[in-house]
Amino acid sequence: MEMIASGAYYTGQYRNLFQEIGYTEQQINARIEQTWSDLFDGAEDVRIYYPLGDDMGYMLDTGNLDVRTEGMSYGMMMAVQMNKKDVFDRLWKFSKTYMQHTEGRYKDYFAWHCKPDGTRLSQGPAPDGEEFYAMALLFASNRWGDGPAPFDYANQARIILRACLHQGEQGEGDPMWDASTKLIKFIPESPFSDPSYHLPHFYELFALYADEQDRPFWQEAAAASRAYLHTACHPETGLSPEYANYDGTPAPVQRHGDFRHFFSDAYRTAANIAIDWEWFRRDEWQVGQSNRLQRFFRNIDVADYRRYQIDGTPFEELSLHPIGLLATNAAASLAANGPDAEHFVRLFWDTPLRSGERRYYDNCLYFFTLLALSGNYRIY
């Protein structure tokens, strides 16, 4: 049982992989502070956060010039990890004001993208935003305490989680989790999932803080997601598809494209698995999986990262987000114990933030990896 009880949730101890390879605490902390400063207050071709008025702000998807629940909820998680309450509250107020539905089939869900002025571009939600919003809000409640609405963080998190499981029971709409498999959906209406949405380490914590009657579901969802990732990740390469059916097989081609392959969304799967291992250590498979993925990428130059079939067959198409992929390959070192783990930590440390038009997604993944590998992506 030692393995099961040795995660950071039980011990309060978080590995600092940068320190393990020889960097000092001072160097590491300076790097984190500088990176935060670059992303939230830096040069125009690097920053991804912009304040709006006196009390709001947004994370800009610089490739599409829109604001997405993915980035907004990521920004809130970054802010609570960094103890930046002002930024957190600004992002949350924007999300609450412009993105969260107050009625109809999507009540309490968030429109997945809008313009920087808050005008909605789509009404539908994307569940990866909702789960990050809920977790960031619970951490904020535990770190800073609750204030008056909408800064009653724990209550706001429970409203979101309630909708995720129960939408449609009293009328129109659909839940974000499939009731029979306990797996998160790609969108509420879809009959398939997205492996990179699976965050069993979050569900373990939702099982502590959600409405009491839903806590057993979240415990089951954590176990179901861990098992699902075994089937969604290729047994030799460790690569997972963008979208996958509930049995883990790649989902059929969609009207908006072919997502049976390893591409941008799928990068996150490696980091999610590694952080679940760091926090809870409930699934020994995660170690071998992380080793497999790093072995696949070890001899591929970052500039040559591309789209792959999950068996590793490369496409002509280069990755749109090579720095993001490097970041998640490095995050896998939290779980990996193979010969490539240190290589990816060093390579990541030696790689700067991405600048330019496509920087948003890469730099979100970059900052989470910087926090995770330094032992600063923590449970509050």
Rank of each mutant, 00 (worst) to 15 (best):
E130K: 05
M59P: 05
W112M: 11
M77S: 04
F110I: 10
F110E: 14
F132P: 00
G63D: 04
A79R: 01
L161S: 06
G129T: 01
S73F: 03
G124I: 14
A126W: 03
R90I: 11
A140G: 01
Q81S: 08
K107C: 12
E44K: 07
D86G: 07
D117F: 12
R105E: 14
M76S: 04
R143N: 04
G104Y: 03
R162D: 13
R143E: 06
M72R: 04
D61G: 05
R47P: 00
M59N: 06
C164P: 00
S37A: 10
F151T: 05
A79P: 00
D66N: 06
Y74R: 04
Y98F: 12
K85N: 00
D66I: 04
R105F: 10
P127R: 15
N155C: 10
E33F: 04
K115L: 13
D86H: 03
A111M: 06
S73L: 04
P127V: 14
M56E: 15
Y49L: 01
Q34Y: 07
K115M: 13
L52S: 10
G129S: 01
S95P: 13
A140L: 01
F151R: 11
I48G: 08
D55S: 08
D54L: 05
K107H: 11
T119N: 15
Q156A: 15
N142H: 06
E103N: 13
L91T: 12
E130C: 04
G168H: 01
P148N: 15
S95F: 09
A30Q: 03
I160H: 10
S73C: 04
M72A: 08
F151H: 08
P116I: 02
D89A: 14
R105N: 13
G168E: 02
Y49P: 02
M76Y: 01
Q167L: 07
W36Q: 00
P150K: 15
M77H: 02
Y153F: 12
